[in-house]
Deep mutational scan, measured.
Amino acid sequence: RPRTRITDDQLRVLRQYFDINNSPSEEQIKEMADKSGLPQKVIKHWFRNTLFKERQ
C-alpha cells in the first residue's frame, strides 16, 4: 500500500484533536476521519506515532 500523504489542512485537524486528547476514542477517530477525509487506520497510526515522538 502506498504511503498516505497528509495535507496541511488534514494535519491541522489532527493536531487540534491531539492537543485536546492524545488518546481518542473510536467515535472521535470516526469524527476525525469524516472531517479530514483520511482513513481511520491512518489516523490511528498518526496518533500512535505522534504520541511516541512527544514522549521522547
Rank of each mutant, 00 (worst) to 15 (best):
Q40S: 13
L11H: 03
L14V: 02
T7L: 04
N22Q: 13
K35A: 04
Q10H: 13
I20H: 12
D8E: 12
S23T: 14
S36I: 14
Q28T: 12
A33Y: 04
R1C: 08
P2N: 15
M32A: 04
R55E: 07
E27F: 04
R12M: 14
K41Y: 03
K53D: 06
T4R: 03
W46Q: 01
G37D: 09
H45G: 12
T4L: 08
F47D: 01
Y17I: 07
Q10T: 03
D8Y: 05
D8V: 10
L14I: 05
I43M: 01
D9Q: 13
R15L: 05
Q16M: 12
S25I: 03
N22W: 06
Q56R: 15
D34G: 12
N21L: 05
D19E: 13
K53E: 12
I6K: 04
L38A: 03
Q16E: 11
Q10P: 01
T4P: 07
K41I: 11
K41A: 10
F47L: 05
D9T: 13
V13P: 01
I43P: 00
R55S: 14
T50W: 06
T7P: 09
I29E: 04
R55L: 06
L11N: 11
D8A: 11
M32W: 04
G37K: 11
I29G: 00
L11E: 15
M32F: 03
I29S: 02
K53Y: 15
K41V: 08
T50M: 10
L51K: 15
K30D: 07
N49C: 14
T7V: 06
S36V: 11
F52Q: 11
D8K: 14
P39L: 04
K44A: 09
D19N: 10
K44N: 04
M32Q: 01
Q40I: 07
P24S: 00
I6C: 03
R12K: 14
K53G: 09
R15I: 06
E26Q: 15
Q16C: 05
R48P: 02
K30S: 06
Y17M: 14
Q40C: 08
F52K: 15
E27P: 09
F52N: 14
Q28F: 02
K41L: 12
R12V: 13
S25F: 01
H45E: 15
V42I: 09
A33G: 05
D34E: 15
H45F: 12
G37R: 10
F47M: 05
N22E: 10
L11R: 13
Q28I: 11
P2G: 12
T50I: 05
E31P: 00
T7W: 01
L14K: 00
S23C: 14
F52A: 14
D9V: 07
R3G: 15
E31T: 12
R1L: 04
E26C: 13
N49K: 14
I6N: 03
F52I: 04
I29F: 07
R1G: 05
Q28L: 06
T7A: 11
S36P: 00
F52M: 14
E27A: 13
W46T: 02
D8R: 05
N49P: 01
T7M: 07
R15V: 05
E31H: 07
N21W: 03
P24H: 02
K41P: 05
Q16L: 09
E26M: 08
F52V: 14
L11Q: 12
K35N: 08
R5F: 14
R55N: 03
R1I: 02
P24Y: 02
